[in-house]
């Protein structure tokens, strides 16, 4: 046991200086320890805390990349603050989301929502994307706001995220955009994303048995202002919702 503990200490020591090109076998004991700690909450928490500490340290990017990957599989609410601290880091924001997007705890969703006001451009769009992937219903009002963001990437990503959330409330938020889209005041990227998101909402509503709500969305998307392939999609969806081809 002492030998194993020594090896684990060596691995964590190696992690402090782990850089691109370093042999990953030097960290194998950390993976072995995580596997052994499955079902052992105390050991798991200790390992999680040590990995989270790496994220707050001056360790190289590759070391933090490693820690994020392990936390994506073994992390809990306890590591969320350390991950959230990386969301504004150009080089590590994605790996922070790589973990946060997978964590089932509500704290991960809260951290992503809270980060929105501090992020810009691609990183903001990334956080929005992760909220969509998590189907985070609490983010619907914020996503609705962001679908009018002056950054076309953020606006289109927010619309897409509302589609992934896919509830009646998300559909209503997207419908509220319809005026700007129909008036040609929205950028093309947002128009395309909003139409696709509404189709996705309709599918989810249909899957939940809400045929009338789904049919209303499909009917709206059959308008002449939509591209041909969107009208086709809406016609197919309407056929499924109404049973008429």
């Amino acid at each position: 046991m002492t030998g194993a503990n020594d090896a684990l200490e060596k691995a964590f020591e190696a992690l402090k200086g782990y850089d691109w090109g370093t042999d990953p076998a030097t960290l194998k004991m950390i993976d072995d320890a995580l596997a052994a700690a499955r079902g052992d909450a105390a050991s798991r928490s200790e390992l999680e805390a040590r990995l989270a500490a790496v994220l707050r340290s001056a360790a190289p990017r590759a070391a933090k990349d490693f820690a994020c990957r392990r936390l994506s599989r073994a992390g809990s609410a306890a590591c969320v603050p350390a991950l959230a601290g990386l969301l504004g880091d150009d080089s590590l924001s994605h790996m922070a989301r790589y973990a946060l997007e997978r964590l089932p705890c509500p704290e991960a969703g809260s951290a992503l929502r809270e980060a929105l006001s501090k992020l810009e451009g691609k990183l903001k769009a990334g956080a929005v994307r992760s909220l969509g992937a998590r189907r985070d219903v609490e983010s619907i009002p914020r996503l609705a706001e962001l679908s009018s963001d002056p950054d076309p990437l953020v606006a289109a990503t927010a619309a897409a995220a509302l589609g992934q959330v896919g509830t009646a409330e998300a559909a209503a938020a997207l419908a509220a955009k319809e005026g700007a889209v129909a008036a040609g005041k929205a950028p093309d990227s947002l128009c395309r994303a909003a139409a696709d998101a509404r189709l996705e909402c309709a599918e989810r509503l249909l899957g939940a048995g809400k045929k009338a709500e789904a049919a209303a969305i499909y009917e709206a998307l059959r308008s002449a202002s939509q591209p041909e392939h969107v009208r086709l999609a809406a016609s197919l969806g309407l056929a499924a919702a109404t049973g008429k081809s």
Binding site: P106, A108, R134, D136, V137, T167, E203, G207, L236, A240
Partner: peptide, 16 residues
Amino acid sequence: MTRPRDTDRRDTGRRI
């Protein structure tokens, strides 16, 4: 985490 039920994620089996 607050997220809707996943029961609505199945392929509805629509054929074109």
